[in-house]
């Protein structure tokens, strides 16, 4: 069953077709990778799906417990509440907040706190804070971040910042998580750790994962299905084995006129 369906999605920046008539679908529990040369429109596609950039035309439908919901035209915060979480290509943490606060800031839509309970510190406030504290502690353990919980997120090493960003996306209690080049700038050891982390998102958190990545060994090992985007157009779709042999994909990566 398709969890997310994208139909004829397009985005024009002036005269440039950044994303043109893209069709794709993501099933519940799947790990889908989105690859393509630089400037192919991968990040733009993520931005359209999560509402950061408004689309020119097309349709995006999410299947929820209460039926199908059209995502285009919704605010990013409302899309996040519906269960689409993401990370960013250039890490966007709340740098001057602690790791713990980064995670808790991502949980604000999961509970309600009464204004008067907040400013008067009524028992209801402490009850809610204990609940959120419990969620946070569990996440910190899952992502191995307990040791750095009280440090400012901006001061952490690069690999750890990536981990915090993924943990923050998981803190929103999402159904689909979009990872935009999570392995960029990582050393092989960190990439191996990342691979375990993505596996964990699927098994322990039961999440559907959509991954943009240039590290082909990571993509080919992890992904069940791959979409290939080039110049804004979806040029191929299939299993890793099919994609590796696809002439259109080889042409896109190595240039035209290659006969394999």
């Amino acid at each position: 069953m398709a969890l997310l369906t994208v139909t004829k999605l397009s985005k024009q920046f002036g005269g440039l077709d950044a994303v043109a008539d893209v069709d794709m679908h993501v099933d519940a529990g799947e790990l889908v990778a989105l690859i393509g040369p630089n400037g192919a429109g991968k990040t733009t596609l993520f931005n359209l799906l999560t509402g950061v950039t408004p689309a020119t035309s097309g349709k995006v439908t999410l299947t929820t417990a209460s039926g199908k919901v059209a995502l285009l035209g919704k605010r990013p915060s409302d899309i996040a509440k519906l269960g689409l979480a993401r990370t960013f290509q250039n890490i966007r943490l709340f740098s001057k907040l602690s790791v713990r606060d980064n995670l808790q800031a991502a949980m604000t839509h999961r509970y309600h706190e009464n204004f008067f309970a907040e400013i008067l510190r009524l028992p209801a406030y402490y009850k809610k804070e204990a609940l959120v504290g419990g969620w946070t502690d569990a996440l910190l353990r899952e992502f191995d971040l307990t040791a750095v919980a009280d440090l400012d997120a901006g001061n952490l090493p690069y690999g750890t910042q990536r981990r915090v960003e993924i943990a923050r996306a998981a803190a929103t209690a999402p159904r689909i998580i979009f990872l935009d080049e999570p392995a960029a700038g990582m050393n092989p050891e960190e990439t191996a750790g990342l691979r375990e982390l993505i596996e964990k998102l699927r098994t322990d958190f039961q999440l559907t994962v959509v991954l943009i990545e240039h590290d082909m060994s990571l993509v080919m090992n992890l992904a069940e299905r791959i979409y290939v985007l080039d110049h804004g157009k979806m040029i191929a779709e299939g299993t890793p084995a099919q994609i590796q042999k696809d002439p259109a994909v080889i042409a896109a990566y190595l240039g035209g006129g290659v006969h394999a």
């Binding site: 960013f88 943490l93 991502a106 604000t108 839509h109 929103t172």
Partner: peptide, 9 residues
């Protein structure tokens, strides 16, 4: 932008 992406209006 990141705040919006985690559900904060």
């Amino acid at each position: 932008i990141a705040a919006e992406a985690v559900g904060i209006n």
